[in-house]
Amino acid sequence: ILYHLDKAKYEKEKHLQRRPQNREDMPLVGIFSQRGKDRPNRIGMTSVEIVSVSEDRLVVKGLDAIDGTPILDIKPYYPVYDKKDAVVPEWVDRLMEHYF
């Protein structure tokens, strides 16, 4: 799902580089290596699980967006294009340890 981060407030001095979740145990990294909402391009993307489809409604699970966020587009997930075995820096694994 591609969506417009309409409530985001990007400030270059504050958001261009920061520690993920503002945690001191995380490295100082650039905004494009994070999933933070305050981005210069205000475009969000999340892979979701489809729960149900009807004529005028798509119900999904796992959408990382605020209720009412404008949806820009819905794309299919194809493992051949959307790599399942992507490699991430070690700090990403630490960041996600207790996220869900």
Results as ranks from 00 to 15, higher is better:
Glu24Leu: 07
Asp25Cys: 03
Asp25Met: 01
Asp25Tyr: 01
Met26Gln: 04
Pro27Cys: 08
Pro27Tyr: 12
Val29Gln: 02
Val29Asn: 03
Val29Phe: 05
Val29Ser: 04
Gly30Ile: 07
Ile31Asn: 02
Phe32Pro: 06
Phe32Asp: 07
Ser33His: 04
Ser33Thr: 13
Gln34Lys: 05
Gln34His: 08
Gln34Arg: 07
Arg35Glu: 13
Arg35Thr: 08
Arg35Gln: 12
Gly36Arg: 06
Gly36Tyr: 09
Gly36Thr: 04
Gly36Ala: 14
Lys37Arg: 04
Lys37Gln: 06
Lys37Phe: 12
Asp38Thr: 05
Asp38Ile: 03
Asp38His: 13
Arg39Asn: 10
Arg39Thr: 12
Arg39Ala: 12
Pro40Leu: 06
Pro40Glu: 08
Pro40Ser: 14
Asn41Thr: 12
Asn41Phe: 13
Asn41Ile: 08
Asn41Leu: 07
Arg42Cys: 12
Ile43Asn: 06
Ile43Trp: 08
Ile43Arg: 05
Ile43Ser: 09
Gly44Pro: 04
Thr46Gly: 01
Thr46Ile: 12
Thr46Tyr: 11
Glu49Lys: 01
Ile50Asn: 01
Ile50Gln: 01
Val51Met: 10
Val51Cys: 02
Val51Phe: 05
Ser52Arg: 09
Ser52Lys: 11
Val53His: 12
Ser54Asp: 14
Leu58Trp: 03
Val59Ala: 02
Val60Cys: 00
Lys61His: 01
Lys61Leu: 00
Lys61Trp: 00
Gly62Tyr: 08
Gly62Phe: 08
Leu63Gln: 00
Asp64Met: 03
Ala65His: 03
Ala65Trp: 07
Ala65Gly: 03
Ala65Cys: 03
Ile66Glu: 02
Asp67Thr: 13
Thr69Cys: 06
Thr69Ala: 08
Thr69Leu: 07
Pro70Glu: 10
Ile71Arg: 04
Leu72Phe: 10
Asp73Asn: 06
Asp73Leu: 11
Asp73Phe: 11
Ile74Ser: 05
Ile74Trp: 03
Lys75His: 07
Lys75Phe: 12
Pro76Phe: 09
Tyr77Phe: 09
Tyr78Leu: 14
Tyr78Phe: 13
Pro79Lys: 07
Pro79Glu: 10
Val80Glu: 09
Val80Met: 10
Val80Arg: 14
Tyr81Phe: 15
Tyr81Glu: 14
Asp82Tyr: 05
Lys83Gly: 10
Lys83Ala: 15
Lys84Gln: 15
Lys84Phe: 15
Lys84Gly: 15
Asp85Glu: 13
Ala86Phe: 14
Ala86Cys: 08
Val87Gln: 14
Val88Lys: 15
Val88Ala: 12
Glu90Asp: 15
Glu90Thr: 13
Glu90Ser: 14
